[in-house]
Amino acid sequence: MILNLFEMVVFGASFTAILIAGATHLRVNLALYSVQTLFIGFATAMTAHAHADDMGIYGIACAITILKGLIVPVCLVMAIDKIRIQSDAASIIPAPLAMHLTIVFLGLSYLLVRGLPVPLEFSRGWPGATAAISLVFSGLVLMLTRRIAISQIVGFLIIENGIYLFALTQTHGMPMIVEMGVLLDVLVGVMISGLLVFKIQHSFEHIDVTRLTQLKD
């Protein structure tokens, strides 16, 4: 039962999310996010193989790997270069503590999933759902504890990965057009938020979201 190939891939994704919660260096965060998306893309390809080599799902796997694994991190790295901030030193709780918190959430999501009715084949539903829910939790921890806006974007992207993984492992696969729409939304969202971060930096000379309480024009 413990960690066959599919389980290793999905738990590899949640493992990178845990490491992201522990790393404060923004470039390391983005590189780990890229690795996580590769894991998700690989899990998608394995699902496609299980669904009698469905070409649509293979297409989605390629699109995820290229759009979310390559273009989104590159956009964010460009944003980092522009605002010249390297690390998220001022998190609200220390990064190692946040990392251990996400491990606790991994255990919690395991317990939560045991209460879920598992619809599909028994072997993939449980580990997939556990990894997906723990991804959502890790993203939430990241969004709640970090101060720099880029980290919050990464947290949002991790939540999005988690929701996608949940849908992937609990259904027979969504129509390709829906997936493409979601991917496009994420891409545009990241580009807009990258621009916004730059604007915030430009007008307030910092991107610390906790200090954005007094907005003036």
């Binding site: 845990i18 522990g22 190692p96 990392m99 251990h100 491990i103 255990g107």
Partner: peptide, 13 residues
């Protein structure tokens, strides 16, 4: 803490 993370996850699994 990173070392402890590896062990904690291994223990959970």
């Amino acid at each position: 803490a990173y070392c402890l993370t590896m062990s904690l996850i291994a223990g959970l699994i």
